[in-house]
């Protein structure tokens, strides 16, 4: 996730008062998530393009579409979908 705006998703004061983080998860049954948490938290993203990265290892077939959902009670729901692509051995993570 990236925040390209100037204002952070959570001001410093917002973090101090404990406003909730973003949650981020693949929309998959738990048994298909081989590595990583069922749901990740991203406390905040500072402005100016700060990026947060989370990784999972999931079971799936090449060409399959997998949906992800990020949620925060202020910013609402953000969904994206990716297509699993075959990768040559040794190229994982690039």
């Amino acid at each position: 996730m990236t925040n390209d705006s100037l204002i952070p998703t959570h001001l410093a004061i917002s973090r101090q008062v404990g406003n909730p983080a973003f949650t981020l998860k693949p929309l998959l049954p738990a048994e298909r998530i081989v590595g990583g948490l069922i749901q990740e938290r991203i406390p905040y993203l500072a402005g100016g393009g700060e990026r947060a990265e989370r990784r999972w290892i999931i079971r799936g077939a090449a060409g399959e579409k997998v949906a992800f959902r990020a949620f925060n009670r202020v910013f609402g729901e953000i969904k994206t979908e990716i297509t699993l692509q075959p990768t040559a051995p040794g190229q994982e993570g690039n």
Binding site: D4, R51, W56, F68, F75, E92
Partner: peptide, 9 residues
Amino acid sequence: MLLPRFAAV
């Protein structure tokens, strides 16, 4: 391995 990376903004 998946690297979800999408812009919140």
